[in-house]
């Protein structure tokens, strides 16, 4: 598999603050990566370093196996950082034309990309007249101009209204489905969960986890169980069932945490045999949120 980007022992210190701490990971072609971390965890600093705007303190990173210089590599990359930065008095078209000149590509794809993000009818409007959602979409169009090998997005839905968030996500999913490698930094877990196949979790600049999103935890999930009959009796009964690790009461629902692969049918059968009829039984995969919180709180 082709390595697009690799980070090796990357460090960034702002005075006493160790913003990025010995970070290493690799981005392979074709995957969709999420960088997850709370606010101020070093996500944006890391992206700033690989995007040539923040100077690293030590360590290394290389684009495309180090075959070309960073600024030339960036011509093959599409990147969007927190806020869209364009020339306010220039039209959408002129702004994109400038990007084409910088990336040394032809300008013939501008209209096509504006169409993708739904801004073609505003191509001659000045950037400063755009709403935040439109600015963000223009940024995406700009990042797509060169049909990038990798698309880097830093908090792309920050500050947008629900509709704007939805539009941006649709566009990202569409791009991901085309097979473009994506690196998405976010603190919004469902955003990452919906889009990313791989995830890197960092906190205080330290990497906590790197791997596939669905392999993030060894947990076998939870089963929510409810009965109209005696709840105490049900709990007693369930405690005897092999493969249930713990039981917690949440209102009238009992949450069973599993230590084995157990189906809801097995539980249902077991309870019915022992004269308890269940009124509700649902199996849940652990949410990324709970895994994320487990991981990030672990070091506290």
């Amino acid at each position: 598999m082709k390595t697009i980007l690799s980070l090796k022992n990357l460090n960034k210190k702002y005075g006493k603050v160790h913003a990025v701490n010995n970070l290493s990971f690799k981005i392979q072609k074709g995957n969709v990566y999420g960088i997850l971390g709370p606010n101020g965890s070093g996500k944006s600093t890391t992206l700033g370093i690989i995007l040539n705007v923040v100077n690293k303190t030590s360590g290394e990173f290389s684009w495309f196996n180090g075959t070309i210089s960073t600024h030339n590599a960036l011509k093959k990359v599409g990147a969007i950082i927190e806020s869209p930065n364009f020339y306010p008095n220039m039209s959408a078209y002129e702004n994109l034309r400038l990007v084409c000149k910088i990336k040394e590509i032809s300008t013939h794809k501008i209209d096509e990309k504006l169409e993708i993000v739904g801004l073609l009818n505003r191509k001659n409007s000045n950037f400063k007249t755009f709403s935040l959602g439109m600015k963000q979409r223009l940024a995406i169009a700009s990042a797509l101009l060169n049909d990038p090998e990798i698309l880097i997005l830093d908090e792309p839905t920050n500050g947008l209204d629900p509709q704007g968030i939805h539009q941006i996500r649709e566009i990202i999913i569409q791009i991901a489905n085309n097979g473009t490698t994506i690196l998405l930094a976010s603190h919004l877990l469902d955003e990452v969960e919906k889009v990313c196949s791989h995830v890197v979790i960092i906190r205080d600049g330290i990497k906590l986890y790197e791997g596939k999103t669905d392999e993030m935890t060894a947990s076998f999930g939870f089963i929510d169980i409810k009965t109209e009959q005696n709840q105490e009796k049900l709990i007693e009964l369930l405690l005897t069932f092999k493969g249930i690790k713990t039981l917690t009461k949440k209102g009238d629902i009992i949450v069973a945490s599993l230590s084995n692969e157990i189906s809801t049918t097995e539980i249902n059968k077991f309870c019915f045999k022992n004269d308890i009829v269940l009124s509700h039984i649902v199996k849940r995969k652990p949410s990324l949120e709970s895994q994320f919180l487990t991981l990030t709180n672990h070091l506290n």
Binding site: N52, S69, S83, F86, I102
Partner: peptide, 17 residues
Amino acid sequence: SNRTIKQNLIDGLSKKE
């Protein structure tokens, strides 16, 4: 002030350029 210098660099202009 428009932070376009940041965008220029990200788009692939080197600081020298």
